[in-house]
Design a protein around this nucleic acid. Structure first.
Lengths: 151, 151
DNA sequence: ATCCAGAATAAGAATTATTCTCATTCAAGA
DNA sequence: TCTTGAATGAGAATAATTCTTATTCTGGAT
């Protein structure tokens, strides 16, 4: 039997996903697994440069998109209007400030036991139910005094 | 008492939101109210041009952002990585295809009775709990035969 | 071991969405 | 009517992402 090294894990994952297990993809995958806090492609790019000095940002985008398409990673709801990757495979809700767009994790159990979605259009395969609590964080509330009665 | 015309409604709304009720904003607000299907700023721009032939796209963006900041409209979770506006004020879950990024509405009752979010960071004010069912629509499933066992 | 074919990569150009700049216009109050 | 600050229009600028293309790599066949 094969050793359970990162690269053999990655090989199995790629076979399952139907993509080629290239060196660049392995390094990017490992970086994603080690990163927390919903990294952006730019951050992943910076993280892998020491190991892949000539890697191109396009390759990082390509690999990430491939991972998202094949279900290796999931995308965080892009309240940022930018791509952010979910590195934590355990489903959990997110807390999003609609002003500064900071995303943070909430307890996994917070919205457990959601009913299974029903009445979906024919042929739609639901993979995940994303729950996001939207609001204003304390520092953004201080800044924006909209909607206050004129005293 | 004032007549309940669209523009008087809008005037009241603007007073509440603390923004000036300009003509451009009125027309954009009315357009949004009449549109369904999570319009993009570009679509709103096209819609208001007959009434505002010289309006600039920047004004459409400015007005929409102002509406979002002051709570007049809400943004749809940007699985699109583009700005989309929620024109239906009744909270309801969305169905999102992660490939073609089409957004459609689900029944409002589908995820009723969600528990109130708890354990939020100090000072965070939750305004809305967004629920999105993510998956693949039938036509995208046909196109992409990833992850299928090799027969 | 070498060759071949197709896939992946690097580099930078191109595209697209959004924001910014600034001169002009507008509107409400003095 | 003037004044003043805000809003607008026009287009430039920016930022994120994708595309293009030449090159490199990989794995299988010879």
């Amino acid at each position: 039997m094969a050793l359970d090294t990162p690269s053999s894990q990655f090989g199995a994952l790629c076979e399952q996903a139907g993509i080629a297990p290239t060196h660049q993809r392995l390094v990017i995958w490992q970086a994603l697994k080690e990163m927390r806090n919903h990294p952006s492609p730019e951050e992943v790019f910076a993280r892998v440069r020491p190991q892949l000095p000539t890697v191109s940002l396009a390759t990082v985008y390509n690999s990430i998109n491939l991972f998202l398409e094949t279900g290796v990673f999931r995308q965080v709801n892009a309240h940022h209007r930018k791509l952010r990757i979910e590195t934590n495979a355990t489903p959990h809700p997110h807390l999003v400030c609609r002003q500064c767009r900071t995303i943070s994790d909430l307890d996994a159990g917070l919205f457990d036991n959601l009913p299974a979605p029903r009445d979906l259009p024919d042929g739609f395969v639901a993979e995940h139910v994303a729950v996001d609590v939207i609001g204003l964080c304390s520092s953004c509330r201080e800044g924006s005094s909209f909607r206050e009665s004129p005293a």
